[in-house]
Amino acid sequence: MVDIMKSQTPIIEIDNLIVSFGEGDDARRAVDGVSFSVLAGETFGLVGESGSGKSTILRAITGLVPSTATTLRVMGEDVSRERGKDFYRKVQMVFQDPYEALHPRHTVWRQLMEPARIQKVPDAETRAKASLDAVGLPQALRWRYPHQLSGGQRQRVAIARALMLKPEILLLDEPTSALDVSVQAEILNLLCDLQEEHGLTFLMVTHDLGVVAHMCNRTAVMQSGKLVETLPVDVLVNGGATEPYTRKLIAASEAYGEAPASLSQLTKV
């Protein structure tokens, strides 16, 4: 964890974000009036219930789903309507589901080179090689297609691709959920190094409070489309959460880490 907060400048500002899906009786707000901001150079966690709207928030930031908001600013610019080409270089997203980010008929190499080509990156090949190394994938995998990789290898291709354009902001949706903890450690260390060297900002969705404790400065907790509370991570891990849902989440995670007498006992927290 980076101990000192790098700045007090908000780099992502979100006020009253609303995303709705469905029509008529089936219309639902997947994100229901969410407000938070992420400071430049910090790692901000987004945790909470499955289906509570975490991925949808990341999609709304990148414009993949239509949304409304009182404020939706990234790097000081209003992005509630449109985003320039520059936005897609400076902001990169690692999807929860790597299949979604990767083109099924492109080789690993082409997945990496394509965004670099669009953005006219001069040293693309060198970068692509370095990205594969950085995520611990052998160069020999570069001629494979996504379906010829293991789940964790696919997830690492998606991470390598996001790093290709040297972004300033990374939106990470469960970026290590398919990795064994030894590879996860390598990726998390890599992210920390990038942050220290280049001052990157991370907005990171995860279900693993151990990862939150290790990586994040602050975290927001979500339940049913609403943001329940936002708190510094040291407050969270030291029992300072005030909302019942947050307390339940941390209690379950703690019990899970130590040795519970039985599984049924765990569910009762």
């Binding site: 909470g48 219930e49 499955s50 959920s177 398919a178 279900h207 989440l249 379950a252 599984l263 765990l266």
Partner: peptide
Amino acid sequence: EATSALDVTVRL
């Protein structure tokens, strides 16, 4: 990896 995307309470 059937429960990797679930929050801890639902997972349990």
